[in-house]
Design a protein around this nucleic acid. Structure first.
Length: 498
DNA sequence: CCTGGAGTTGTCCTA
DNA sequence: TTAGGACAACTCCAG
């Protein structure tokens, strides 16, 4: 038996969006089936690196997560192999150099990833290597949660019911984590390569990314799921809306790169449900609902890839945007004159992350106050966000624009002032990111334009100079937005009647 | 095939 | 000050 083990050919585990050792289904299978002879590989793909949708924050977070992965591997007697180039070519070459008989990876569902993986599969088949992929990134894959008519869901709530009841019917595949088997040392003669710097990848370094990696992600998950944590899951449904509070899980970037598995989140939430009192249920359910959104938008992108180009409902491609570039620049820089919008955009620019409530507010402002095409905002978010996820980002933008699945009613237009007063009642969030408004009293913190020159002097602000006056009038723009949508709807109805 | 309930996150006006 | 209703119509989905 041991002699059989010795001649087992190695298996390449290709890391992509699963940068972790724990609870990694493809990796666990590769270890099991090769008796530990796993070649852990990451490939820097130029197509991704040089996409205009990838910014320095995401690159930095990726590098940190890879460094953490490498040191975790070293603690387990192995190390990360690093390559750069076309994945198909790299994999064929490494398989030949190492004698690996198979390549394992966890499936990804975005159009780009699927196309790439098909190419890789074809190339490896030609090189007579086995390719095996696993379900790991999502709780349920796009074809596993379907309506009674076997069609993909396009409405969230029924999707969520089905998603949840499938877990309740048999939680075992979700709550059981595979054991991590031992790694054998890497075969001699294989150059591990080394992690490049951001500059070597053609990106400027980013000093403001958060700490990436599996250990950091798991620690955040544990602390968030702790029922005694006042900013944790227990009151999530209420506290998550207050932008100044650290009351969201802040796991988005870790989930995006798989530093933490989606299953681990659900597992932890279900365990919390079991020991929670009734009062903690709504918080836990609300957070599970967020995981469900992740799967939901992934399956939307899988079944309806056209959403990356335009509206989910094509009739909304007829919206006549203003697309004023100086307004767009003001929005990007956080200089619109609406404090909550500006604070949020500066949080994004300085931290590579934005609170979810704030994302809705700035998106609504771009679309319905500035009348700018939601795709401009979608692209900017992807460039700046450490968690920049094509599926969730697109879904969120289309939701606010009312062009997507589950479109919000057309009349639901966020008022940036009342959103600020509601969800940043004392202005702490605004003051944190807009130091020029530091001394503005609570009364004016969301409406600085109402200050008299005397008020301004006392608060050491000068409107239109140290802080901009509003670049548009919300009341006016709201009416224009309503008219813009009404026109597109009329036209769609007319086209349909023909 | 028909039927009916429902649809993440709001705003504004009126009484 | 606050609570309640209007704001569209349409499509999705389950029964």
């Amino acid at each position: 038996m041991s002699s059989k083990k010795a001649i087992m050919p190695p298996i390449i585990h290709w890391f992509r969006r699963d940068l972790r050792l724990h609870d990694n289904l493809a990796l666990a299978a590769a270890l099991r089936e090769s008796g530990g002879q796993v070649l852990p590989l990451f490939i820097f793909d130029d197509t991704i690196l040089h996409s205009p949708r990838v910014g320095p924050v995401r690159v930095q977070f990726l590098l940190e997560s890879l460094a953490a992965l490498d040191s975790a591997l070293q603690q387990h007697g192995s190390r990360l192999l690093v390559r750069q180039g076309d994945p198909a070519a790299v994999l064929v070459q490494l398989a030949e150099a190492s004698g690996a008989g198979a390549i394992f990876f966890n499936r990804d569902y975005t159009p780009f990833a699927r196309q790439r993986d098909q190419r890789v599969q074809a190339a490896l088949q030609q090189a007579r290597r086995e390719v095996r992929s696993f379900q790991d990134l999502v709780i349920w894959e796009p074809d596993q949660v379907l309506t009674q008519a076997d069609k993909p869901y396009t409405v969230y709530t029924p999707y969520r019911r089905q998603w949840r009841s499938r877990i309740e019917a048999d939680p075992r595949p979700i709550v059981t984590a595979p054991e991590l088997a031992m790694f054998a040392p890497l075969p001699a003669g294989i150059d591990p390569g080394r992690l490049p710097s951001a500059q070597q990848l053609g990106h400027r370094p980013s000093q403001y990314a958060r700490a990436g990696g599996e250990a950091e992600g798991l620690q955040r998950l544990a602390s968030f799921a702790d029922l005694a944590n006042p900013d944790g899951i227990r009151d999530y449904h209420v506290q998550r809306d207050f932008m100044a509070r650290p009351a969201t899980s802040r796991l988005s970037a870790y989930l995006h790169l798989g530093c933490v598995s989606t299953r681990a989140c659900v597992r932890v939430a279900l365990a919390a449900l079991e020991r929670a009192d009734a009062a903690a249920r709504p918080g836990i359910d609300a957070w599970l609902g967020e995981i469900t959104w992740h799967d939901f938008y992934m399956q939307i992108l899988y079944h309806f890839p056209h959403v990356l180009r335009g509206a989910f409902k094509p009739e909304f491609n007829a919206l006549e945007w203003q697309n004023d570039t100086s307004h767009f620049a003001a929005w990007c820089q956080g200089r619109t004159g609406y404090p909550v919008v500006d604070a949020a955009m500066r949080q994004l620019n300085s931290e590579g992350w934005m609170h979810n409530r704030a994302r809705m507010i700035v998106a609504s402002f771009l679309i319905k106050d500035l009348l700018i095409d939601w795709r401009w905002g979608e692209r900017y978010f992807l460039q700046q966000l450490v968690d920049g996820d094509h599926a969730a980002n697109n879904g969120g933008w289309q939701w606010v624009a009312g062009t997507g699945t589950d479109a919000q009613p057309y009349f639901r237009i966020f008022n940036p002032t009342s959103q600020g007063q509601k969800f940043d009642p004392d202005g702490a969030y605004v003051r944190q990111y807009l130091p020029e408004l530091q001394d503005v009293p609570k009364k004016f913190i969301h409406t600085p334009w109402q200050m008299t020159t005397d008020d301004q002097q006392k608060a050491s602000v000068k409107l239109d100079s140290s802080y901009p006056a509003p670049i548009v009038d919300h009341k006016v723009q709201r009416e224009r937005a309503l008219a813009m949508y009404a026109k597109a709807r009329r036209e769609a109805a007319a086209a349909k009647a023909q």
